[in-house]
Write a protein that binds this DNA or RNA. Structure first.
Length: 500
RNA sequence: GCUCCCAUCGUCUAGCGGUCUAGGACGUCGCCCUCUCACGGCGAAAACAGGGGUUCGAGUCCCCUUGGGAGCGCCA
């Protein structure tokens, strides 16, 4: 899936200014994705939480791309993440920090730890480590590095082997993480092994890079997925060894799929770009995401301002939430109804390159279609849950001459119905003003004289004009379509009936 | 296997020892509105995983069981 080609082609942004000097009590959060794929829904929520917390406290949210894995990081993924954040409406402060550009600093910190005795060289080979894990697995022992080089004389180093640098972690006592979400979490140090800080090729591990960068970027609050909870313990050890103050932690439970299993690509772990193409509004996704794992009493709908004002780490739940498309759709329907008509036309148009071709539409609307869309939007948006539904429900506005009837509409237009329309035709032809109220009056009186219910006339008419059995209010439809177009569509069906 | 986390309607959740015959939202099902479908309104079914404690009193605190989840890389 990943394009491993030439990541070196990318010029990393300079990040020498990462050493910031903010006011000491300013809140600084960060979103730190690794660019190995799109911005998925879990990452989006993490970004949102970081964004909200920073905004809530008048602080800053930084963006750091963790691209130290040169094999798996791609420019395409960086682009997708940036685009995703942009679409979601989450902005960050300052320049993007590319972690890879900071390797020299990471190495420097590792060396300093080595010099101070807080770390040591380990010459164990990959194979050796694998055997260690294998035998531990076999004997039912914990899978940990056994510290074989921890106190060994470096003179014993095998020739020609490039060592890694490992943290000389405390082996007794406990490591405590005070977490705003998880509470006080305690590990016995004997259960934690000596992690690798610097690989044998001189590049930093994630564990080191994160600590150094968060420190240098003056991050005060780390808000991330709880798959990092045990990492927090190990990172605490690094902070302690360095004599640095650790940030405030908040480990948010992961989002699960509808079946309760971890959200994977198989079920719903789509990139936010997919949600955009599925016709969801960023505001709806934000609102859905903020309520997934977080609550504020019984409030369900939050404007951005309300979200920012109410957001609080302490109200984040500790159990994983399942992703529920139905609720997202419901919220999306709400925001659709609330959105200005012109904005919706605009959003539809930006989706046209994606949705248009399959629907016989170009990549933009004609002025006439745009006019009709806007005039009908009030009635249309009330009936749609997504922009796709909205576009599909507007079929009749851009359909050309011979309207394609869907199955229900075709069934509705039986002989009797066509006959009814045939006798209605001359009445409509002489309607003085082609406006909804006049049309309604004319059709109601026609139904009355014919001794039928309005629905008996309205439904066939709707089918003839829109090709569907559902639509916005019929008389509005007629007004927007105009006299010429309406009568043409009506005649087409009446004649069609005569042929049959 | 080891470490850690979690557990209220199908789903998201409110609840932070008594106000809980457990509230809201989505979804589901009725009814109303009505030219269709929606929207809107009204109503219904629907949960404290199980077992022990603590307490005058437990959905709320503790323990165990069960069931989920995360982590245990020279990935991030």
């Amino acid at each position: 899936m990943l394009n491993d080609g030439a990541p070196a082609a990318r010029a990393p942004l300079p990040s020498s200014s990462a050493q910031t000097n903010p006011m000491s009590d300013q809140v600084v959060t960060r979103f730190a994705p690794s660019p190995t794929g799109f911005l998925h829904i879990g990452g989006a929520r993490t970004a949102l939480f970081n964004w909200l917390y920073a905004r809530r406290h008048g602080g800053r949210m930084l963006l750091r791309i963790e691209d130290t894995d040169r094999e798996r990081s791609t420019d395409a993924a960086i682009g997708a993440i940036l685009d995703g954040l942009d679409w979601l409406g989450l902005d960050w402060d300052g320049d993007v920090v590319y972690q890879f550009s900071r390797v020299a600093r990471h190495r420097e910190v590792a060396e300093s730890l080595l010099a101070s005795g807080g770390a040591y060289h380990c010459y164990a080979s990959q194979q050796e480590l694998e055997e260690m894990r294998e035998s531990a697995r076999r004997d039912g022992r914990p899978l940990r590095y056994d510290g074989r080089w921890r106190d060994r004389d470096p003179a014993d180093a095998p020739p020609g082997v490039k060592p890694v640098i490992r943290l000389r972690a405390q082996s007794e006592g406990e490591t405590v993480v005070q977490d705003h979400v998880q509470g006080r979490v305690v590990w016995q140090n004997k259960d934690l092994d000596d992690l690798v800080l610097l690989r044998s090729d001189g590049t930093p591990t994630y564990m080191l890079a994160v600590v150094v960068d968060d420190h240098d970027m003056a991050v005060t609050h780390v808000i991330r997925g709880d798959d990092h909870l045990t990492n927090a313990a190990r990172q605490s050890q690094i902070y302690r060894a360095l004599g640095w103050r650790a940030p405030e932690w908040s480990h948010v439970p992961l989002i699960h799929g509808a079946d309760g299993a971890k959200l994977s690509k198989r079920h719903g772990a789509l990139g936010v770009d997919a949600y955009r193409d599925l016709g969801y509004l960023p505001a709806a996704l934000r609102n859905y995401l903020v309520r997934l794992g977080w609550s504020h009493g019984n409030q369900e709908i939050f404007s951005d301002e309300e979200m920012v004002a109410a957001f609080d780490l302490g109200q984040i739940g500790r159990s994983p939430a399942r992703f529920d498309v139905a609720k997202l759709e419901s919220l999306n329907g709400h925001y659709l109804r609330q959105a200005p008509d012109a904005e919706l036309v605009c959003r539809l148009e930006t989706l046209l390159p994606v949705l248009g071709p399959a629907r016989g539409l170009g990549t933009s609307f004609t002025p006439e279609v745009r006019r009709r869309l806007e005039a009908s939007m009030a009635g249309l948006k009330e009936r749609a849950k997504t922009l796709i539904e909205l576009l599909d429900s507007a079929y009749y506005l851009h359909a050309s001459a011979p309207l394609t009837l869907d199955a229900k509409a075709a069934a509705l237009l039986d002989e009797a119905a066509r006959a009814r329309l045939a006798s209605l035709l001359p009445i409509l032809e002489v309607v003085a003003e082609w406006r909804a109220p006049e049309l309604e009056a004319a059709i109601r009186s026609f139904a009355e004289t014919a001794g039928t219910k309005l629905g008996q006339v309205a439904q066939p008419l709707r089918a003839a004009l829109t090709g569907r059995t559902t639509s916005p209010p019929l008389f509005d439809v007629m007004e927007v379509l105009g006299r010429t177009e309406s009568l043409a569509r009506l005649r087409a069906q009446v004649e069609n009936g005569a042929d049959a």
